[in-house]
Write a protein that binds this DNA or RNA. Structure first.
Lengths: 247, 247
DNA sequence: TGAATAGTGTCTTTAAGACACTATGTG
DNA sequence: CACATAGTGTCTTAAAGACACTATTCA
């Protein structure tokens, strides 16, 4: 088959977003309610068409800003500052995944600190945080199960987040700029759904060079003895990794 | 923005393949010579358009068969048997990545045992194995540097393979159906570009339950004392992982 | 005072790193 | 024979698991 650019089947290309955060001790994802068919009234992942002149990560960052006001912090992006972690997740292109036409969706994963209530976009769709446990529960009732193949995409995003905080410092992306060791531990516990030993966890994270940098401040917002505040250090890779306990 | 399926910019969607194998102690990739502009005469990754009615993995498996005759062995595919490991790698969609039009390419990673000489496809393009070290070398001369953004895609695929053999049993995908511990060790050494202690390696792989299953046979094809033959066991995850030595 | 969280230290256990040594084939 | 590769064992070291114990706040 010669490479003939004039004879290709046209596809629609979209980005879908798995936006994760930790709210009240549970891993949660951002979902929007669909206002029109198909799957009208069902919850779905935020997303939209990639424009003709923008890159994939660019489209994902734009959609993220439209839905949440968050500024994406791409690994290599120049705009350093506050914002959420954004990375490509995977691409979904089953011919039947959208009943209307052939759509290939490039899913992206966003890890964000706990935010104020999500703001509805300009199109006034309703938006909310939902615990991933509910969204991925076995009961496939239409009140909670996601539209299209979004349950699969969400599951892949959750699994990516769970495995990536093992060997990277990405768990800090779920934390505010300054946080305590205990707050970071509660992130791991929420994402993995396990309880961790506070003492061994403290030894591990404070003993890993470049992971945490003390800011000098303390806080008592968790109650109990005042805890040191840290910010994320320069290290991105955790070696040896944080071990996820067996279930 | 309402979700209007009639107003989307059309994209071409392709699959590109990073096909890796270990040949004469070096990690090698399959490349094809381009017969037409742009980048005429340059080497590129194999790939092609996704058809209107096929899925992404399906398209990748079809292209792989066309280029090499290999049957893909997808993680969840029903067609168990001999074949190469196939998984999605990442998607590349920079607006400028193809000078002719807007192309989004879903790259796939294939890990294959050392094969007989690749067969040219029906279109008689020339095909060869090249050491990834040469393809990714710093010298950007057009004799070796790849067309389009394929050097970046190849680098991402190599990095995926290097990290994935740490915590999975995927290194066996580079081996024939029956292999020795020494042959498996040479796979790790070629992919990582390091030397491993044969004795500690032997202890590690034979001590990991489900990684290797002895077949009872022995071989002397590597010279020296006859070595036991193994095949890949059912385990897919290595816990604890195989540790990649620091450089 | 009691409850909660923060932080340090100690002992045990797992598994990797660095070897010595033996086994069994080929030229 | 020399030499190559295969395979086992031993000692040391790094780091996780399982705790005990102290520190500092608030109600």
């Amino acid at each position: 088959m010669p490479y003939d650019p004039s004879a290709f089947p046209p596809f629609a290309v979209t980005v879908d977003l798995v936006v994760l955060t930790v709210r009240d001790h549970a891993l949660s994802a951002l979902v929007v309610r669909r206002g029109e068919p198909p799957y009208q009234g069902r919850w779905a992942l935020p997303g939209g068409f990639v424009r003709a002149d923008e890159g994939l990560a660019e489209a994902a960052a734009r959609e993220l800003a439209e839905e949440t006001g968050l500024r994406a912090q791409q690994p290599s992006g120049p705009g350093a500052g506050l914002g959420a972690h954004l990375e490509q997740l995977a691409t979904y292109g089953d011919p039947q995944r959208d009943p209307r036409m052939r759509v290939v969706s490039v899913a992206h994963l966003v890890l964000a600190p706990d935010l104020p209530a999500p703001r509805a976009g300009g199109d006034a769709r309703s938006v909310r945080w939902a615990h991933v446990g509910e969204l991925l529960g076995r009961t496939a009732d239409s009140a909670t199960s996601l539209a299209f193949d979004h349950a699969r995409i969400l599951a892949d995003g959750v699994e990516r987040a769970r495995s990536k905080i093992e060997y990277s410092s990405l768990a800090t992306a779920f934390c505010p700029p300054e946080f305590t060791v205990g707050e970071l531990r509660r992130v791991y516990e929420a994402v993995w759904g396990v309880a961790l030993d506070p003492r061994n966890f403290h030894r591990k994270v404070t003993g890993t060079p470049g992971f945490l940098v003390p800011t000098g401040g303390t806080t008592t917002r968790q109650g109990g003895r005042p805890a040191q505040l840290f910010r994320a250090g320069g290290a991105t890779v955790l070696n040896p990794p944080m071990l996820r306990p067996e279930v």
